[in-house]
């Protein structure tokens, strides 16, 4: 057994110890040998990163300019922006998002809701993976957090959209978005949309695009909130 194992070791392995790894020019053609000798890519990757990290203003359409920062105390929480979307109070704000599907293991879903009046945030996640138990978390968001979330929803103009032409929920899953903002109450349902490519040919592409980006931002908000509030640092 041990003889067999020893014979499987590459013959040059022992010889190369303590020596700089030089390309072995035996029967290898010169081109392949030089290619093997290159240790690093020609362009160092870190040099490429800053330009990726901060996109140019010319390429992307930026959201409208932020309101000039003003002092705001926690007791007097007024909206600083004078625009129509966000001049509402958080009294009539509610958002609920559901995504899930019926697999052969049962209903697997993720859902969260935020009620603006009380600030109550609820999060449910049920995965049937290896008999996982359902996760239910509840916390109360401050007015400032609610305001940040409400601004995301208001800026997206989702309440002006309609799900009449959107793909219907199907076997691959269902998404629901319910929003109450000012005096508008929407409750949309559509199929799982996992990429922009899937909605490229839809009739209501603009509406679905608005929806898709809003979902991404709602989820990144909830992800930040839940992971910061509930996650244990294991060291």
């Amino acid at each position: 057994m041990s003889d067999h194992r020893r014979s499987r070791r590459p013959r040059h392995a022992r010889a190369s110890v303590g020596r700089p790894a030089a390309p072995r020019r035996g029967n290898i053609p010169p081109a392949a040998a030089s290619a093997g000798a290159i240790q690093f890519p020609a362009v160092p990757v870190p040099l490429l990163l800053p330009s990726l990290r901060r996109p140019s203003r010319l390429v992307f359409s930026l959201p409208p300019a932020r309101p000039s920062p003003t002092t705001m105390s926690s007791s007097d929480f007024a909206v600083q922006d004078g625009s129509a979307e966000s001049s509402s109070s958080s009294e009539t704000f509610y958002v609920r998002y559901f995504m899930g599907h019926n697999s052969r293991y049962g209903l697997e879903f993720m859902e969260f809701e935020v009620a603006g009046t009380s600030g109550r945030m609820r999060y449910v996640n049920q995965s049937k993976y290896r008999r996982d138990k359902i996760i239910r978390k509840e916390a109360y968001l401050s007015k400032a957090s609610i305001q940040a979330l409400q601004q995301i929803v208001a800026e997206s103009d989702i309440v002006e959209e309609d799900d009449k032409l959107w793909p219907r929920p199907n076997n691959s899953g269902k998404q629901e978005l319910e929003v109450v903002l000012d005096n508008k109450h929407i409750s949309f349902s559509t199929s799982m949309i996992t990429s922009m490519r899937e909605i490229q040919d839809e009739k209501d592409f603009e509406g679905l695009q608005t929806y898709y980006y809003l979902i991404q931002e709602l989820r990144s908000f909830m992800n930040a909130v839940i992971s910061l509030h509930f996650k244990i640092i294991p060291y």
């Binding site: 859902e111 609820r122 239910r136 509840e138 629901e176 005096n183 508008k184 929407i186 409750s187």
Partner: peptide
């Protein structure tokens, strides 16, 4: 309230029932 969307016709059981951890 102006209501819009086909989610209002949904009569499925709420998944937000139960005991929540806090």
């Amino acid at each position: 309230v102006v209501r819009r969307g086909r989610g209002f016709n949904n009569n499925s059981k709420s998944t937000l029932d139960g005991d929540f951890d806090h």
